[in-house]
């Protein structure tokens, strides 16, 4: 790897710009491919460039053969994000476990006593009202959104924004009864039934979790399952 390629990769990753490094596995010759055209790609076969862009879209690094050559496509996508609405007790272990699993975490809670820096040292915190915060954070297809407050005043506006976004996972803490009420509330806000059905609720895999840390494990396990196996496998 050339030093300038390494420097460019670091700059792209810092700027959260998806980039694929394509390496000839025989010669070590390398190029960077972006989702949009750039002049560096001119020397690569067009099917290789297409494969590199596809690898970025599906976030899967892979070998690729074309024209008698064998290449490795290394997809570098921006970090996964987890937005946690509700700076409640569960949010503390959840933010730590999520960070270990590779997520950049933001905790949203307008209640100052909850979202104190003492409770969430080192975690990004937004004290805006959840719908405003979620709109500003703009969940993308590499973002998971979890609501933990149990309070429809806080959870529902966040969910309404999250369900209109391409977030790959939306989950909401609460019992079946709470969840049923929540679905009614969202329907009254004009959220359509298909969108409401996207919510994982009650949240988390059913592993008998009881303590806040155990519930956090069950939530991260479910987010992982949806990410790796798709929403249907997790349903």
């Amino acid at each position: 790897m050339k030093a300038d390629i390494l420097a460019q990769l670091q700059a792209d990753r810092a700027a959260k710009r998806p980039v694929a490094r394509v390496t000839d596995l025989e010669s070590g010759a390398e190029s960077l491919v972006y989702l949009a055209d750039t002049k560096e790609e001119i020397s690569l076969p067009s099917d290789l460039i297409e494969a590199a862009r596809r690898a970025l879209e599906i976030d899967r690094s892979q070998p690729f053969e074309t024209g008698g050559g064998r290449y490795f496509i290394h997809a570098h996508n921006p970090p996964l994000r987890l937005i946690i609405v509700g700076a409640v007790h569960i949010a503390q272990p959840l933010s730590r476990i999520a960070a270990l699993a590779g997520y950049a975490v933001t905790v949203v809670d307008p209640r100052r006593a909850f979202a104190s820096s003492a409770r969430f040292a080192g975690v990004a915190v937004s004290r805006d009202w959840p719908d405003k915060a979620l709109t500003a954070l703009a969940p993308d297809s590499r973002t998971a959104v979890v609501t933990l407050t149990h309070d429809p005043k806080l959870d529902n506006p966040a969910l309404a924004v999250a369900l209109r976004s391409p977030a790959f996972y939306v989950g909401s803490l609460g019992s079946k009864r709470t969840h049923a009420k929540r679905c009614e509330g969202l329907a009254e806000m004009g959220v359509d039934a298909a969108a409401i059905a996207r919510i994982h609720g009650p949240i988390g895999l059913s592993i008998g979790a009881a303590s806040p840390a155990e519930i956090a494990v069950s939530i991260i396990a479910q987010i992982t399952q949806v990410r790796r196996q798709g929403a249907q496998a997790a349903a």
Partner: peptide
Amino acid sequence: MATSELTSG
């Protein structure tokens, strides 16, 4: 938006 920077905590 009042978002603090993610640090190494």
